[in-house]
């Protein structure tokens, strides 16, 4: 499964576990994460669940910290990490 698909699936799960709903019709690359309906607790849960599935947390590994603003930024951080191996 592609990283993007894993993220989409766990995003749904994180929404559900914080009892929130998507605030837009679908997640697009320019969707601002904190406007998506997922609050920062949900976002933290998403990162923790992704670490369980993918066995890395790119935010812990980063030397220069980046906080993603859009969904596209977020996916890119994971995709770049996978490319690097």
């Amino acid at each position: 499964m592609q990283v993007r698909e894993v993220i989409l699936e766990l995003f749904e799960e994180a929404l559900e576990s914080t009892e929130s709903r998507l605030q837009c019709s679908e997640l697009k690359d320019d969707t601002v994460l904190l406007d998506s309906g997922l609050d920062s607790l949900g976002f933290a849960i998403l990162v923790a669940r992704l670490e369980e599935e993918l066995e890395f947390d790119p935010f812990v590994e980063m030397e220069e910290a980046v906080y993603p603003i859009t969904f596209g930024d977020f996916v890119a951080i994971y995709e770049n990490r996978v490319k690097k191996g």
């Binding site: 920062s40 607790l41 976002f43 933290a44 849960i45 990162v47 923790a48 947390d57 935010f59 812990v60």
Partner: peptide
């Protein structure tokens, strides 16, 4: 606790 880059810590 589990360390989290977003919330400091999470409950596990």
């Amino acid at each position: 606790p589990k360390g989290s880059g977003v919330m400091g810590q999470l409950v596990t």
